[in-house]
């Protein structure tokens, strides 16, 4: 434990990476480390980026990070990709678009899979942000595909959240969950060299108006960028600074962080319950038997659930 702690404090990449793995895979040991870290660490400013697949999140992240690195800001990137429901595997491809930044010694990129119900990823993302903060990364970017509730939850950990879309993603915008509209602090229409940019901008603005009304302290701006040509990045960074300033006025930041901690506390309790109770039930092999009984109507699922938890929990 001391080895991890020391390595993280020294900014040793290998130890940081191993600590993240530990936290992801081994709750007991991981918690021990995180307890020690938490009391001595202020969590760095977190920027969340979400949007549909192929909207350019990684490229945009790369562009923003490039700018921070120029001024020597140590940046951590947590790139989250979905786990396949069928195989349990995941393809984590976000490094591809950031590869030319990987060489900078001030950036640490970690890819994570959402894992299944029993993976407890939501808590691990926060934990990873905590570890990176302790290691001296002043700014942290969490990038995730904005398709499901799980991803919205992840992005909710961020202080400033960017929602990325493209001009031709009309249908996807229509189906953006209300939660995502309310989560975004800044909206970006990327690939703005394609047709219908203005239409998309308007559509988002209208949806925002519906979600927020007109009387709001922070009206999310809608920006346009062409990430792979570095266009619009300055304005985007400027807006992020503005939002940071807004958040740091009065008690807003404190309130925001309190909400994140509340969320994390729930995530952690869920992780404990899943691993200690549901996980044990799944491992016990009792499920199959019960399901057969339920299917044959010898048992109802309500009694079965109550009993499984009672019998298998600790």
């Amino acid at each position: 434990m001391e080895r991890y702690f020391k390595g993280i404090k020294e900014g040793n990449e290998k130890t940081i990476a191993e600590a993240i793995t530990l936290v992801e895979n081994d709750r007991e040991q991981g918690f021990k480390l995180l307890k020690k870290i938490f009391s001595e660490t202020e969590i760095s400013y977190i920027i969340g980026i979400t949007g549909p697949p192929g909207s350019g999140k990684s490229t945009l992240t790369g562009e923003m990070v490039k700018d921070w690195l120029r001024t020597g800001v140590k940046t951590g990137i947590i790139a989250v990709d979905p786990t396949s429901q069928f195989s349990g595997g995941a393809l984590l491809g976000d490094r591809i678009r950031m590869s030319d930044k990987v060489t900078d010694k001030n950036v640490f990129i970690r890819s994570m899979a959402t894992r299944g119900e029993l993976g407890g990823l939501n808590s691990s993302v926060f934990d990873t942000a905590l570890i990176l903060s302790a290691a001296g990364y002043e700014r942290i970017v969490i990038e995730t595909v904005g398709v499901g509730q799980n991803e919205i939850d992840i992005v909710n950990l961020a202080d400033t959240t960017l929602v990325i879309t493209t001009p031709d993603a009309g249908d996807e915008i229509q189906t953006f969950k209300a939660g995502l509209m309310e989560t975004g602090d800044i909206f970006v229409v990327n690939k703005a060299d394609r047709p219908d940019v203005i239409k998309m901008e308007l559509m988002i603005k209208q949806m925002l108006e519906m979600a927020y009304g007109t009387e709001t302290e922070w009206t999310p701006p809608v920006l346009t960028t062409v990430a792979n040509r570095s266009q619009g990045i300055e304005e985007l960074l400027q807006k992020i600074e503005e939002h940071t300033g807004y958040l740091k006025t009065g008690r807003r930041f404190y309130q925001k962080r309190k909400k994140v901690l509340e969320k994390q506390l729930i995530n952690l309790m869920e992780r404990i319950l899943r691993e200690n109770y549901i996980g044990r039930v799944l491992e016990s092999g009792l499920m199959e038997e019960k399901i057969r009984e339920i299917a044959a109507r010898k048992l109802d699922p309500y009694t079965a659930a109550e009993n499984l938890i009672k019998e298998r929990g600790v």
Binding site: E13, A90, L91, R95, V102, T103, F108
Partner: peptide, 21 residues
């Protein structure tokens, strides 16, 4: 869980990626 890093990687990039991940 597969991290794909894309084309034209230097040995240093590959090793650093493997360490960070």
């Amino acid at each position: 869980e597969v991290v794909y890093t894309g084309l034209r990687q230097t040995p240093a990039q590959i090793v650093r990626g493997a360490i960070q991940e």
